[in-house]
Nucleic acid binder design. Sequence first.
DNA 1: AAACGCAGTTTCTAAATCGGGAACGCTGAC
DNA 2: GTCAGCGTTCCCGATTTAGAAACTGCGTTT
Lengths: 277, 277
Amino acid sequence: MKSLSKGLRVLMEFTADAPVLGVTELASRTGLAKGQISKILNTFRQHGVLAQDQATRRYSVGSRAFALGSRFVNYHPLAREALVVMRQVVEQTGHSARLSIMDGDQVMYLLQSEGIFLADTGWRVGMFLPLHATTAGKVILAFLPPLRVDELLDGATLVTITPNTITDPATLRRDLAEIRRKGFGISKGETTAGLGTVGVPVFGRDGHVTAVLGLVFPLHLVDWADAPALAAILHEHARTLSQGAGCPVYPFGGSAPRPTGTSPPQAPVRSGRRARA
Amino acid sequence: MKSLSKGLRVLMEFTADAPVLGVTELASRTGLAKGQISKILNTFRQHGVLAQDQATRRYSVGSRAFALGSRFVNYHPLAREALVVMRQVVEQTGHSARLSIMDGDQVMYLLQSEGIFLADTGWRVGMFLPLHATTAGKVILAFLPPLRVDELLDGATLVTITPNTITDPATLRRDLAEIRRKGFGISKGETTAGLGTVGVPVFGRDGHVTAVLGLVFPLHLVDWADAPALAAILHEHARTLSQGAGCPVYPFGGSAPRPTGTSPPQAPVRSGRRARA
DNA sequence: AAACGCAGTTTCTAAATCGGGAACGCTGAC
DNA sequence: GTCAGCGTTCCCGATTTAGAAACTGCGTTT
């Protein structure tokens, strides 16, 4: 299927960094002939996968692509349960919650539930980031089989995303060891300047990391002494998700009585220095 | 581009109703030969657009399709602003907020922000529904040019989704007139049994309906006498969105001073009979 | 236990579709 | 008014696809 393959190669050029593209630009990016690109784009347009701006003649992702892609998260084993759980996390902490999964050698954001302190993190659902540059990625690495981690890290250069991104393999491996010990990972502006994150693993049937449940917040709102408290909340919910995913025993967090039923919004354990105005 | 076109036709068979499909089933659905379907599916799998379950050998939508599709909403003109606005709506009402757009002759859910009363509505982002069977669709119809409405309604049979779905054209047109008058539409279980919705239009540059901002809630939680109050809240925010989309004057709702800045979480105007447990 | 049936993958050949370069409108800039 | 840049169309050679049937592997039946 060479023709289909080429079409998809063209389609995949519509990245988060370049969401709107023209024929000539795509031709230079892919090395294909302009005329061919034009025909490919037209086919995608006919199917609603791409949309063409009538004024600029440039193309961007269309609604049918969105409809199709949404089926991935709508039918993802974790998603249905995670949606509910994440709302509870937001209610309890006030911060935005996030569910990330591993995709290839990157991290992808699957779900996000906006909190009250931070409505827009800039990073959106469906975006990819390198494993070493995010809390989610580090947590995944921490619980991956050591051989797999070596495969992923050896030879790979740890790209800089912000000044705080971990770029030294030794530092990263120390961080991974600490994550394994504590059961949660943190980031102080390693992915986005000014934003902090806490993340805990969700395990699947075979005890492998399936996803990472995390919180995102402006750094100035959270005292890092509270990180274990936030992690404890996440651990409770990650236990629920892990059990739902077929991993009966969750190794982290106390076995404190979990809130039963569908989130009776109890006294929120908000950890901001300055809570609601 | 016949090959690409066939590939996309196969891809589009992965609907919300049939998110997991096998080769034979796709062959019978599309009328193509099994062997060809197999090769097409393989190509999609190589690109991550589809994923194959190793046990059942069946295919479902993959992560790259999700990543691609998410770019539609991430770069949709309304989405960035709507994300923030919808969080505010949820804070103020406690109910789930939704942003829907028109796509072809259907309604598509673009964004959803979960409330505390109803974490999962069953209908998910990226799903399509007929215009007449949803609040969003009715609001869109109400503010579409009359000629366009005639095109859409004449000859079309109004499909039944629930026992409450409006299936009589005359009844529908009366509802549309009322929506135009009041500035908001409602549904009492017309889309999903037991769920009610309120929706208001968002207008774009040329004054056309761009989207519908709505609330979803379990019917027993809301007194319909409160509907205008909910609509008033939605109107405020829809005004913000319309202005952001280039429509300076929003015709509905009082010009009450809007809450400034990014949602100072004020006293919530919850309208449930039995508020938080 | 052996055989059947079903589902997915592979093989093969004729012929249609694609690939590549260059020419053609169209729009906006100078 | 002319030029430059972009997207689209045209054309021919040959690669690639379409289609039917055979193959393999697994689960179920007898």
